[in-house]
Computed example of a mutant assay.
Amino acid sequence: MTIADLITWFEEWANPAWCESWDNSGWQIEPGVLEQEARVLVCLTPTLSVMAEAIALNANLIFAHHPLIFHPLKSLRTGEALAEMARLAFTHNIGIYTAHTNFDQVNDGTADVLAQMLHLQAVSPIVPTQLGLGYGRVGMLKPSLKLQELLTTIQTQLRPPKLIFSPTADLQQEISRVAVLGGSGAGFISAVVKTNAQAYLTADCKFHQFQESRDQGLILIDVGHYASERPSCDCLAQKFQSLDLDWVQLSQKDEDFRQFLSH
């Protein structure tokens, strides 16, 4: 399958037209590789480490969730990471393609994978967009779990370096309805409350957002951006492996960008 055919297949599933106006999904750099047989490295974030990995593995496409280019460029200068990414992409004929807010909405996208990992049932979007799809997922735990059991399940499944959750007096509280949203999901707290979810798994929550969540009777669980979205990249790589591609692999050089001191 050529890179052009792969992108056509993907965009029929996760249409870039669904992206938010502030987003920049689609081709970030296309150095003339469309007719080549696809050799794909899937990653969460396109970085110089991932680019070096792609070069070493003779990949010709980096397929990322996070955009390489978010804001209009004013310049490209030696020593800047973005400029170096562009130089290496053209020098080694490696395309960079991003699926961001369109991939967030679809079945088997960032939120849906989290729902599947927690075995949520009767799942629906937190905020519907089109065709029954949308941002986040909310569903039922059957059987229900105690909050401590839910936190242990999340720790086991997602392996976050740090798991932060709302202060609660009762880790034995029964949890039966859970909402999930990969990435920075604190802006959806009010929408989650309307779904009657008892707990909300997401990332990048600030101090007062934990307060807001607690005041509305919602247990907020923050696993960090990387841990909440990396599993969907694994799922996407597996989807690609089911196609007639020359080669596909999940990046081993994706970075969390954060470290925590161990006690």
Rank of each mutant, 00 (worst) to 15 (best):
N58E: 11
E174P: 03
Q105C: 04
L82I: 12
G134E: 14
L145Y: 15
M140I: 12
A86G: 09
L88W: 06
V193E: 01
F165V: 00
Q130T: 11
L120M: 09
G182C: 05
L82P: 04
A115V: 12
A199F: 08
A89P: 09
G183F: 00
L171C: 02
D108C: 08
L131A: 10
L181K: 02
L120Q: 03
A83T: 15
Q130W: 07
A179Q: 06
K146C: 10
A83H: 11
K194A: 15
T78V: 15
T98C: 14
A64K: 09
F90A: 10
H66R: 01
V180A: 07
A81F: 08
L133D: 07
Q148R: 09
A64V: 02
H92Y: 13
T156M: 04
A81R: 12
Q130Y: 09
L171I: 14
L114W: 00
Q121L: 09
L61N: 02
A115M: 10
P161C: 00
T195L: 08
P125W: 07
I164N: 02
P161D: 14
T78P: 03
R87Y: 08
P161H: 01
T91Y: 13
T156K: 13
V127D: 11
T101F: 10
L150S: 12
L163H: 04
H66S: 07
L163K: 04
S75F: 05
T129K: 15
V138T: 07
V138L: 03
Q155Y: 08
A111P: 01
G132V: 11
G187E: 12
G109M: 05
L141D: 04
E80T: 13
K74D: 05
T101V: 03
L114R: 06
A111F: 09
H71G: 00
L147M: 10
Q130S: 15
T78I: 08
K194F: 06
K194D: 15
T153V: 08
S75Q: 15
V127N: 14
S184M: 08
V123P: 03
Q198K: 07
H65R: 01
L133V: 13
Q157F: 15
Q198H: 11
